[in-house]
Design a protein around this nucleic acid. Structure first.
Length: 123
DNA sequence: GACTTGACATGGA
DNA sequence: CTCCATGCCAAGT
């Protein structure tokens, strides 16, 4: 591909690629772990487009093979919105099924469940 | 074609 | 850590 690394999503590129890359990034998330929108956005080279991540996921609708339920916000909580018809609660239920403990405040221990990509060449 | 909304993030108080 | 205000990009109206 080697497209122009303008630092922002290729405007000329196909939008499908955006969601595609998103899924490609979300797919490798292991069982029982979660990733933040910011993480996904940065991984696809779209830092600051975390909002767009949620947009793409929403347009997918259920059922979806993508591990969308493993994507949460940087606050360590599941983003809930009335516009989702309660799918947010489904996400919480799915996370619980994976053994992820969720606080009464719907907060998750990112420090324990946050997924770490192999981008860390040194530690 | 312009304004509003949205499953967000960051910075300052 | 929590709350308020601002910035980001794309789809919907």
């Amino acid at each position: 591909m080697t497209m122009v690394s303008t630092g922002r999503p290729n405007e000329m590129t196909m939008k499908k690629s955006f969601e595609l890359r998103e899924y490609e990034t979300v797919s490798p998330i292991p069982f029982g772990q979660v990733a933040t929108y910011d993480q996904i956005a940065e991984l696809i080279g779209a830092y600051g487009c975390a909002w767009q991540i949620g947009w793409s996921l929403k347009r997918l609708r259920l059922p979806s093979k993508i591990h969308w339920h493993r994507v949460i916000n940087t606050k360590g909580e599941v983003s809930m919105s009335i516009g989702r018809e309660g799918t947010d609660w489904v996400q919480i239920d799915l996370l619980k099924s994976e053994g992820v403990f969720i606080n009464h405040e719907l907060k998750i221990q990112l420090r324990r469940y946050l997924w770490k990509p192999d981008l860390m060449k040194d530690s």
